[in-house]
Design a protein around this nucleic acid. Sequence first.
DNA 1: ATATATTTTTAGGCATGTCTAAATTTTTAG
DNA 2: CTAAAAATTTAGACATGCCTAAAAATATAT
Lengths: 223, 223
Amino acid sequence: MYICAVITLSEENYLKAIYHLGKRGSQSVSTNAIARKIKAKASSVTDMMKKLAEKDLVNHKKYQGVKLTEDGQAHAIKVIRKHRLWEVFLVEKLKFSWDEVHEVAEQLEHIKSEKLTQQLDAFLGFPERDPHGDPIPDKDGNFAVTNKILLSEAEVDTKYTCVGVKDSSADFLKYLNKYNLTLGTELEVLSREDFDGSFSIRFNNIRLNVSKDIAANLFIKPN
Amino acid sequence: MYICAVITLSEENYLKAIYHLGKRGSQSVSTNAIARKIKAKASSVTDMMKKLAEKDLVNHKKYQGVKLTEDGQAHAIKVIRKHRLWEVFLVEKLKFSWDEVHEVAEQLEHIKSEKLTQQLDAFLGFPERDPHGDPIPDKDGNFAVTNKILLSEAEVDTKYTCVGVKDSSADFLKYLNKYNLTLGTELEVLSREDFDGSFSIRFNNIRLNVSKDIAANLFIKPN
DNA sequence: ATATATTTTTAGGCATGTCTAAATTTTTAG
DNA sequence: CTAAAAATTTAGACATGCCTAAAAATATAT
């Protein structure tokens, strides 16, 4: 068995960013996109890409962006698995609200212990999704995919179920809390305004107008 | 309220080391002692002591060692609180054995989130001791003290209860596992050999000879 | 008391991960 | 097609936290 070089906390954050930006690591990602995500300068990203390429975690062609290698993708998925498991733990066991978990999970996702991850998974009952509706990879890196769409892409006069959020910033989640729009809520799309891209929806017997920005961050699936 | 400067992971490890070496931070600790504990060179310790002194976490008199300030002690206790709470979590909830928890707790103790610590404490039922018998500080930094002694200091022909371990290295704990010598076990001290400092003890109806080294690492209290 | 040994500090160097400023390559627009 | 704009990389710098080697202070032993 081959000994995996130590991957630092910083490197893990880059791998995760590249994974998310490149649609699960399948696409090539630009230096600038990574810089925005990581909140670092492009030059810092280039430096790090050289290091990750050296470790065979990404393929880097000068001026052409990077793509995760098999190894890089596998590692990114491990970090994401830990992040999402910890989120479930925080909400289910420690009574955190879904808008409070992200920051803490960002720290916990870097804890290195195979046994910890496995046992945590078992303790939580092998959950399939985190509190934001995102799928949790299993120990082999496989995870469920749903035929989810964004509310902004929904058909009018159709019924859906809310299954996830694209943006899990506290502000967005607090908005959903305010209107009791939780995952699993059934909703009907009543109309769409061409002028501003806003939607009128009905759920729990209330009618709500949501802006284009809200609609572009809420995942739903047809009933 | 005053804003506490960020304390790095490395700084936290030094604070913890000084706390343990200086008998809960009450005594002055030498540079070399810290270096041994941290497994770093004395010169690195001096560098770090300057930084900690700058942040008012230790008092450092040149060539005279360091002592924790109130702030430094309070912070060390917070780290120790987290370390011990996570150990309880790993053993009670995730089925870790007491000889496996240390390394993982060393990572988890640095996670920064007041709420996480408080909720974890509550989730575990506000435990008073960790799996090795060490007291867990409460949120204000107070913790139980027991009149424990080392087996090596025990009276012959006296009955005691095993309440903790001084050294919690995996090797020592595995030795105790082997003989089923768990915390809470009642034992009788039968004799002590002047020649090698070993003890003969009886517990669970078995008789066992333990070396000086074992005796110097097992805490007991009189029944 | 003084020479030797030990401890501690200083000085200078190195890797990590970041930055700014300048140079280079690629993309876009006229 | 070429000039300007945008993206990317290079070069050089800095803070952190560690190191080695040498100097300084303290402790120990005869």
